[in-house]
């Protein structure tokens, strides 16, 4: 087979070119740390990388939502806790007042404290989370219950029955507000009954109001239980989503990141091959018959 110098030059150049291409590709992988810099590096891998990244970002967002929801629920719980304390005190007073050893004067004095407790409960119903009222439904730019006169009637609720929604995982929303009316209406009803009984100086009415206070208490307990259950659910979900995040990050890294050890090994190998081809090229191109003819 006839070999000309031109052929040898072309072959040498082509091989050196190819080796340099390989070395340069490995170098760019090493410096960027990423195996996939453009879709053609690994088409299905690129699509997976995109969807894993999207999953990571949305999971992060859900965790933020859950955090805020938990804070809301915890704030609700503390407010309701304070209301419970107030109700206990009111019940104590009501039990005392139902005793017939108390006369009208004593009862009038007690009424003052009951009014204070009532006002305090109203204030507690104006509890806020940041700028939003907790007990006003979705009309949370204004307080739910307003004070029309020293006694607050159930009809003075100006919020609505709306649910404050938060999305906590794909397609799943959670209403995080306590229903203001089911929680507070019984309380104000009981207070009004107690007030009426004290004004009328009637033991039987005061006795009846103790029952109403008990109903109010169980309404609060129910509310708190619901809030507590939601917090538990959110915490479990938070744990699960954190695990999901870790998994996704691992998957993303698998697909996208370059295995450093492997890449460095391949890179030094490629460099060796390149050097060898350069040396061989230098040696094969030199001799020709002209060197040996006089």
């Amino acid at each position: 087979m006839r070999i000309t110098r031109g052929m040898m030059i072309d072959t040498t150049l082509a091989n050196i070119q190819r080796n340099q291409e390989r070395t340069s590709l490995l170098q760019s992988q090493l410096t960027s740390g990423s195996r996939i810099t453009k879709p053609s590096d690994d088409p299905t891998g690129a699509a997976h990388a995109l969807s894993f990244q999207e999953g990571l970002d949305t999971t992060e967002q859900y965790l933020t939502n859950i955090d805020q929801a938990k804070s809301w629920l915890n704030t609700t719980d503390s407010a309701l806790d304070a209301v419970t304390t107030t109700l206990h005190r009111a019940r104590e007073l009501a039990v005392q007042a139902s005793n017939d050893t108390f006369d009208a004067q004593d009862r009038a004095a007690m009424q003052a404290e009951i009014t204070q407790l009532q006002t305090h409960t109203l204030d507690l119903s104006h509890a806020k989370f940041g700028a939003y009222y907790l007990f006003a439904g979705t009309r949370f730019d204004q307080p739910g219950y307003v004070q029309a006169n020293p006694s607050t009637t159930p009809g003075a609720y100006q919020g609505n029955a709306g649910q404050v929604q938060r999305e906590i995982s794909p397609g799943v929303t959670l209403g995080i507000n306590a229903d203001a009316q089911t929680t507070f209406d019984p309380i104000f009803t009981a207070f009004n009954q107690l007030q009426a009984g004290l004004t009328a100086n009637s033991s039987s009415q005061i006795q009846a109001s103790i029952g109403a206070l008990d109903t109010a208490m169980s309404a609060i307990v129910t509310s708190r239980a619901q809030a507590g259950a939601k917090v538990n659910r959110l915490e479990a979900l938070q744990q699960r989503l954190s695990d999901v995040k870790v998994n996704l990050a691992g998957l993303l890294s698998n697909v996208k990141d370059v295995d450093m050890a492997e890449a460095i090994t391949s890179f030094s190998m490629a460099q060796n091959v390149l050097q060898a081809s350069l040396k061989a090229g230098a040696q094969v191109l030199q001799p020709s018959l002209l060197d040996y003819l006089r």
Binding site: A46, A49, L50, Q53, T58, Q61, N65, E167
Partner: peptide
Amino acid sequence: EPSSSGLSSLLTKYWNSWQDVANNPAD
């Protein structure tokens, strides 16, 4: 793509900012 400035990442940021509005509708 894949990169943090590509369309996929911008789409996700857009949907996430709706989530932020859902969390703070009056802000």
